[in-house]
């Protein structure tokens, strides 16, 4: 009997090897590269230079500022646009809300570069392109990431117990009062996971900022790409990646349930099928 269980357990060996080779080791390399420099003879030596360089260089700090600002604004607009959508879809009691929800997330299946290109043509026609680089970038990010906000909000609002709302009503709470004191707090997990799912890609998805911001907006993701492909400096690139990870970690920590969010995030795609 023992041997039997052993044979089924063995099935995870290929994936374990894969994880070590292509997830663990590469992430370790990032950490090593971030805190080293290359000597003239090609050997690596420990150094804090990249770290100090990042925080003393005004253009890098500006990129950090731009990135965080764009992400905040994007997340904010996603939230205020998505909440009513999710609320109506989850609570209106209409028939066929499933079809409506599909309509809202369907654009996600169109290749995102094609989607952003389409938006670019529209912004070009209404005369925004080349004029309002920040506005265009934020519009693009909201456009791209809106489904990431709608889905978790919809899920948490749908789970909401109708009897709680009725109880609040029976006890004399008005609609606004019920919303602020019952619905909103109970949908907090959805709000938080929506925030983390929008905030991170808006700091890194440089396809949007490059395509719509006329190459004038540099976000952290773009800076990493530049150090990788243009300057061929993987040490600085790795340092920026580490800084990015720290920011993401802090946002997740700030938005509360680190663990809860991980669960929700993991289901972000799975919800679609």
């Amino acid at each position: 009997m023992k041997k039997l269980y052993f044979s089924r357990k063995q099935l995870c060996i290929p994936y374990s090897v894969f994880l070590v080779l292509f997830v663990f080791i590469p992430m370790l390399l990032i950490l090593v590269y971030a805190f080293t420099q290359e000597a003239a003879d090609g050997s690596l030596y420990f150094s804090f230079d990249n770290f100090l360089n990042f925080f003393t260089n005004s253009s890098k700090l500006q990129t950090l500022g731009v990135s965080v600002t764009v992400s905040f604004i994007t997340t904010f607009f996603c939230l205020i646009i998505a909440y009513p959508v999710a609320y109506i879809l989850a609570r209106s009691g209409w028939k066929h809300t499933y079809v409506l929800l599909m309509l809202f997330i369907m654009p996600m299946w169109l290749n995102f570069v094609l989607r952003i290109t389409a938006l670019r043509e529209l912004l070009n026609i209404i005369g925004f392109l080349g004029k309002y680089d920040y506005v265009n970038t934020v519009i693009g990010m909201v456009y791209d990431f809106l489904p990431f906000m709608i889905l978790p909000l919809y899920n948490s609002l749908q789970k909401l117990d109708q009897s709680l709302l009725e109880a609040a009503n029976d006890l004399g709470a008005g609609d606004v009062h019920t919303f602020l004191h019952v619905t909103l707090p109970l949908s907090m997990p959805g709000i938080l996971s929506g925030i983390t799912m929008v905030f991170m890609p808006s700091m890194t998805n440089y396809v949007v900022s490059e395509t719509l911001g006329n190459s004038n907006i540099t976000i952290l993701g773009k800076m990493i790409e530049e150090y990788f492909s243009t300057y061929d400096d993987m040490h600085m690139g790795s340092m920026i990646a580490i800084i990015l990870l720290v920011i993401i970690f802090l946002t997740m920590l700030l938005s509360g349930g680190f663990k809860e969010n991980a669960d929700e995030t993991s289901s972000r795609g799975a919800n679609l099928w």
Binding site: S16, V23, P26, M27, I30, P201, F228, S238
Partner: peptide, 25 residues
């Protein structure tokens, strides 16, 4: 293993991409 499986899911895609590029380089 389930924790390790979450790393690429939670990680920013560009960090995963850079890490792999460094490995192959």
């Amino acid at each position: 293993l389930q924790g390790a499986n979450q790393i690429p899911v939670v990680n920013a895609e560009i960090v995963t991409a850079l890490a792999l590029a460094i490995l192959f380089a």
